[in-house]
């Protein structure tokens, strides 16, 4: 449905650098990246507001260069909703159909249908300025969906909402996508959104797509240190493979790490998610192949969990209950256990 072939573009401080990817029909494709990575520029380039400096974009197999934004069959939802403030909810929703010359009867039917789908029939005579953030976002979605676009482009659609509304709308997005099957490109910096919604995730950093993969692989098997750091893999260790037997590598990281690995030799990066490490006061028999004795350097409260930093360079996420139970504090002697399958290894060029 969408194909980027080596697309580069510049707009002010934002840029895309040699971006290539494709999105299949009906796919929910999430572009994940930090602020300023070029995510919105990517969407606006798909929508036709910017012409690539180099490379090309294919939409439905057709070169999009000559297509005007109104000819691309895209629906666009911005982070701040961008509702037309001088039109009611119904006026906003009808707009696209009127622009397309749809008959009055059909306009009524489709507006009714989409307002029902989003659960906002009761708001049809209200102006955007009188609506809550969640309601405005529903209207923005209704306005984009009513034209039955081939492609739905969502620019950080949930980030301006409070937590509860965000979760509700996230469910809504999944429900609507399942119901309609519209090819969707959703850009966000929120990893939870990506994990919850995406069929595939593309990580974009500094205008470059650094990994395109399933959410599970992006989060658990990042392809580079930059991706690992961005998706919250706090334990990035440098090591050298010292042995390899039956698919399990022994890696010297200052202490020995056993990892199920495709890398069999040489210098490597070792990635371990902090939530995959268990702390205990004593070493105990378990399926974990790695048990590392360590000393606690610092315990930091991060919302509902605590981050425990150790002298072995391992960061561990624990609950308040664990902190209380073990009396975790600076200087505590502990054992960090993790499975060989919880370790991801990539080659490191020296």
């Amino acid at each position: 449905m969408i194909r980027f072939e080596g697309v580069s573009n510049d707009w002010g401080e934002f840029r895309l650098r040699d971006v290539s990817f494709s999105v299949g029909e009906g796919e929910y494709f999430v572009v994940l990246g930090p602020t300023g990575a070029g995510k919105t520029l990517l969407l606006e380039t798909i929508a036709g507001f910017y012409t690539p400096r180099s490379g090309r974009i294919l939409l439905r197999g057709e070169d999009a260069e000559t297509l005007l934004p109104e000819e691309r069959g895209v629906g666009f939802v911005y982070q701040d909703y961008s509702l037309f403030p001088h039109m009611t909810v119904e006026g906003n929703t009808r707009f696209g159909l009127e622009m397309r010359g749809v008959s009055a009867e059909e306009v009524e039917r489709r507006v009714d249908e989409v307002l029902r789908l989003l659960g906002i029939e009761g708001l049809r005579d209200r102006y955007p300025g009188t609506l809550s953030g969640g309601e405005q976002q529903r209207v923005a979605l209704a306005r984009a969906l009513v034209i039955e676009p081939d492609i739905l482009l969502l620019d950080e659609p949930l980030s301006a909402l409070d937590t509860r509304t965000r979760e509700a709308l996230r469910d809504e997005l999944r429900r609507i996508h399942r119901a309609r099957g519209t090819t969707t490109v959703h850009v966000t910096h929120d990893q939870t959104e990506a994990l919850f919604l995406a069929d595939r995730v593309a990580v974009i950093i500094d205008g470059m797509l650094v990994q395109v993969d399933t959410p599970d692989r992006v989060f658990n098997k990042p392809g580079s240190v930059r991706v690992a750091e961005f998706v919250g893999v706090e334990n990035v260790l440098e090591g050298v493979v010292t042995g390899y037997t039956d698919g399990v590598a022994s890696i010297d990281c200052g202490f020995t790490v056993k990892a199920v690995s495709e890398v069999t030799e040489g210098s490597v990066y070792v990635f371990i998610r902090p939530e995959n490490i268990i702390l205990s006061a004593e070493a105990f028999p378990s399926s974990a192949r790695n048990v590392v004795e360590c000393t606690v350097l610092e315990v930091v409260k991060l919302g509902s969990v605590h981050q425990v930093k150790t002298d072995k360079g391992l960061n561990v996420a624990v609950t308040q209950q664990s902190v209380d139970e073990f009396g975790l504090k600076q200087g505590s002697r502990m054992y960090a256990s993790f499975k060989a399958t919880a370790v991801h290894v990539i080659q490191r060029s020296v």
């Binding site: 929508a47 109104e70 666009f76 961008s82 622009m99 306005r143 984009a144 482009l153």
Partner: peptide
């Protein structure tokens, strides 16, 4: 962005 949205809607 209001104009841009209008363009994607067919204007």
């Amino acid at each position: 962005r209001l104009e841009r949205v209008a363009r994607t809607l067919g204007a």
